[in-house]
């Protein structure tokens, strides 16, 4: 299946985040805010109503000193392929007005802000809390409005937004390729803002179907896992970790279960 896909035109853009490398600096979040005109509040104390398309979580193994370990886990939208990888991601299948859609050419889950009427069903459906609601109209302090990216439309109050894998960058890269009479995009031509901002190179982005892209190999790394894989959401964001407790934290397991075994069963099916 995977082999077949790599020869077709359909792309499946995805991300591999190396948690062994991530320092939790938050540069990915900052880059994302600026790239995608993500609105912010004057007081960001309450994280439950602040908007971020990628959020760095702090995980701990809950052990006392000196065994304490910390892991930072950046979480963008997982761009789920859904059950059976048919594009029926948890959110796309529930949106009553087709305001979020699965693009079969790229595997990217879109959000159409002018179509969304704010029922928030997609937020209820998404187990990753990747979707954020605009509880307020965006307020840009002082002159910042002049420095908004012209490539990304700012959102209005009352609609849901989420990470788009910087889809506008894909569009720009496609336009450039078209002008240069090319069909194919090089790996470096389309990269997300967070990927480029990461100072330690923990984030790798590319076409999961393309053998020449780094993510193709990385996703098969023995350290690779995905968040909440057992729910069969089929995320396109992979994580790498050498720590078993991190891997265990990434999903839910019954007392007698071990992460590796469960994943194998799923892959086999």
């Amino acid at each position: 299946m995977k082999e077949q896909n790599s020869h077709t035109n359909a792309k499946r853009y995805g991300m591999v985040i190396d948690l062994d490398k991530c320092t939790g600096c938050g540069a990915c979040m900052v880059a994302c805010y600026s790239e995608n005109n993500v609105p912010f509040k004057t007081d960001e104390t309450n994280k439950l109503d602040s908007i971020n398309w990628i959020r760095v979580y702090k995980l701990t193994n809950n052990k006392p000193y000196p065994d304490t370990e910390i892991c930072y886990l950046p979480m963008p939208c997982m761009q789920c392929d859904g059950i059976g990888k048919h594009g029926h991601s948890p959110c796309v299948s529930v949106c009553p007005a087709v305001a979020t859609d699965y693009d079969y050419d790229t595997g990217i889950v879109s959000q159409i802000y002018t179509r969304c009427f704010g029922c928030r069903y997609c937020m209820a459906a998404c187990p990753y809390h990747a979707r954020k609601f605009n509880w307020w109209d965006p307020k840009w302090p002082a002159d910042t409005e002049k420095y908004l990216s012209p490539n990304v439309s700012p959102r209005m109050r009352g609609v849901v937004e989420k990470c788009s894998f910087c889809f506008h960058r894909y569009q720009l890269a496609r336009e450039k390729a078209y002008l240069e009479k090319r069909q194919k995009l090089e790996e470096q031509e389309y990269q997300t803002a967070c990927t480029q901002a990461c100072p330690v190179g923990a984030i790798t982005f590319g076409d999961l179907n393309n053998k020449d892209h780094a993510v193709y190999k990385l996703k098969n790394d023995p350290r690779a896992f995905r968040l909440l894989e057992r729910l069969q959401t089929n995320p396109k964001v992979y994580y790498l970790t050498s720590k078993n407790w991190v891997r265990r934290a990434g999903d839910n397991y019954l007392a007698h279960e071990e992460p590796g075994n469960i994943t194998k069963v799923k892959e086999h099916h």
């Binding site: 029926h88 299948s93 529930v94 949106c95 009553p96 007005a97 087709v98 305001a99 179509r115 969304c116 009427f117 704010g118 029922c119 928030r120 069903y121 609601f133 605009n134 209005m156 109050r157 009352g158 609609v159 849901v160």
Partner: peptide, 26 residues
């Protein structure tokens, strides 16, 4: 009252996603 953009409420009919339970409800 519950929807974030009440003036767009008619989208649920006009742009109906027939796979969504909420569409059927509406």
């Amino acid at each position: 009252i519950d929807i974030g953009q009440p003036l767009r409420g008619w989208f649920i009919f006009w742009h109906a996603n027939v796979h969504s339970m909420l569409t059927e409800v509406a």
